[in-house]
Amino acid sequence: MKDVDDKFLKNPDTEVPLREELRPRKVTTPDGQEIDIDPLRDYFCEAKPKVHPKAYSKIVEDFYNWARANSLWILGFGTGCGAIEMRPLMTPRFDAYRYGIQWRPTPRQANLLVISGYLSVKTLKRAIRAYEQMPQPKYVMGLGSCTINGGMYWDSYNTIKRLDDYLPVDMYVAGCMPRPEALLHGFMELKRVIKEGKGEGANLYAENFDQYKANQKAVIRDWDMPDYNW
């Protein structure tokens, strides 16, 4: 049996219409005024991300990096089966808290986004939003072979194969699924990277912003959010 149907060609890009509630339109306010609203522009800041320079002095920057490495706050956001491997880290057996790792419920207070496993296109959209809302400097960790090359979802029609096409990844943890020990090791390696001052994923993202956006929009067909959501 042949694996690939050579004749199959995917549907060339058809525009997905914007959802009705997100279209720009005229609304009549209760007191009779007519106003134009554009939900995508009204609620979000549209400025592109900036490249933030390091601190001027190397000592200060090293000191900051030490603090960043020892206070990793993870966004509590689970995408695939790997989300279940993160939970044991809070338990007495693994206890990631002793390394200064904590879970935060809001992207505004998190520094580390752990993509825990396969990422469907629908989830990718949410992951991008969460990533962009995190304050700089921010780090991304890809968990499991799904984020590296697709893993067992290598022929799936709606999961992405390479995470670093869409988000700047600082650290990959291989495995399917990686055990919590592997995760802890990944955190330690990430700490080392940050302390060396190489954890500059957010600046990379800002520099190659157009490239990343093009990749993202190629797979997310119904792009119904602003280009950059702060």
Binding site: D3, V4, D5, D6, F8, L9, K10, N11, D13, T14, V16, V121, K122, K125, I148, N149, G150, W154, D155, S156, Y157, N158, T159, I160, K161, R162, D165, A218, V219, I220, R221, D222
Partner: peptide, 28 residues
């Protein structure tokens, strides 16, 4: 479940999911 799906319905057998994924997502 799908958002913004414009192709063939994916569970139909004339939809080749491997070919689709090769044409859509980059391989490493």
């Amino acid at each position: 479940i799908l958002e913004g799906w414009t192709d063939l319905p994916p569970y139909r057998r004339d939809f080749d999911t491997l070919a689709y994924s090769q044409q859509t997502y980059n391989d490493r």
